[in-house]
């Protein structure tokens, strides 16, 4: 006699399987709860991306300037001091491929967008792009609603803590336990209290700064250079097609850093800037990298990042360029 028809359901599990399922649930439920507590704690930390996201949501119809770039731009451009309504999407280690994804992913939400401030730092063109599963893609997805993964996203792609446990574990400890997070973000997500760098520790003493050791990447890679340059041009073509005006900027570096740069890398980067100037009518250059007259030790956080005082000066220079574009 044939047995009863088995259906594909939880009820078709054997007793052993059911017992094991309960065992697993008993074990994993605390893990899942603990994880979500962590996630909530992380989401509660006032990080700049969150502020950018909120600002984007609330001011998207007013934003005229978008700044993109790495930590240099993040520290160097304060949208609060911009003459035009601006948003600064730059963040640490952000490369052109992320810049481009953010641009493409937000442009339709910014009807008034007119200008893009784009950073091409000393070694931007010889550093490899991040892969498609770069941890910050979760941030872009979560806070800016930008899919930089270039694939359909899943639930896990929105889990912030899981995207970089190492980074967020430190953040959690710093914020909740050690209380060492001194950042003071303005409504644009710019840290107006960002002075705690190497230079402050050295009391901005130029003699001490001269002997201060720092890390600089002086490695050359012409293959990456070619690839990144082509990508940059693709990005500029896109901006041109969208009829946006672009300021391609190099940000100030302190003189000790300037001395240590690899001349080949600098020369290649500068040659690209010259080509950009000739090729794109919608682009103007803001070359401040070697500006050691306006930017002194007191304007720097460390050898290659400005502090809020330096940002004030740099943002004023951006304002001048914006005026010239109008």
């Amino acid at each position: 006699m044939p047995g009863p028809k088995r259906t594909l359901s939880i009820f078709s599990f054997s007793k052993t399987q059911k017992r094991f399922l309960k065992y697993c649930l008993g074990f994993f439920i605390p893990v899942i709860i603990a994880y979500f507590i962590l996630e909530l704690l992380v989401l509660n930390i006032p990080i700049n991306y969150k502020v950018f996201g909120t600002y984007l949501d609330t001011h998207s119809r007013k934003i005229k300037v978008m700044a993109l770039g790495s930590s240099q731009m993040k520290c160097g451009f304060n949208p609060a001091l911009s003459d035009e309504n601006a948003i600064n999407f730059a963040s640490t280690s952000q490369h052109h491929n992320e810049d481009f994804q953010i641009l493409k992913g937000t442009i339709d939400r910014l009807p008034k967008l007119k200008y893009v401030l784009l950073e091409v730092s000393y070694n931007h063109l010889e550093l490899p792009h991040h892969p498609n599963d770069y941890w910050k893609n979760t941030i872009y997805l979560k806070y800016y609603n930008v899919n930089a993964f270039e694939r359909p996203t899943w639930f896990k792609d929105r889990l912030v803590y899981l995207s970089n446990p190492r980074f967020y574990s430190h953040k959690l400890m710093d914020y909740y336990f050690y209380k060492t997070d001194h950042s003071q973000l303005n409504e644009y997500g710019f840290d107006i209290n960002n002075y705690e760098g190497a230079f402050k520790k050295l009391n901005y003493d130029e003699t001490k700064i001269a002997s201060h050791k720092f890390k600089i990447i002086d490695r050359e890679d012409t293959a990456i250079f070619k690839k990144n340059t082509a990508y940059l041009f693709e990005m500029l073509d896109y901006l041109q097609a969208k009829k946006l005006k672009v300021i391609v900027a190099t940000l100030p570096l302190y003189k000790t850093y300037l001395k240590e740069r690899n001349p080949n890398v600098v020369q290649r980067r500068d040659s690209v800037l010259s080509v950009i100037k000739k090729k794109y009518k919608n682009v103007i250059l803001l070359k401040e990298e070697t500006d050691t007259l306006q930017f002194t030790a007191k304007d720097f956080l460390n050898e290659n990042h400005l502090n809020p005082d330096g940002a004030k000066k740099f943002t004023a220079l951006v304002n001048q360029k914006l005026d010239s574009l109008n």
């Binding site: 941890w135 803590y161 446990p165 190492r166 574990s169």
Partner: peptide, 15 residues
């Protein structure tokens, strides 16, 4: 097991 899971979450290296 929980210690190992904790270590995996807390001390994970960059992906």
């Amino acid at each position: 097991y929980y210690i190992l899971i904790f270590l995996i979450f807390r001390y994970a290296g960059p992906k």
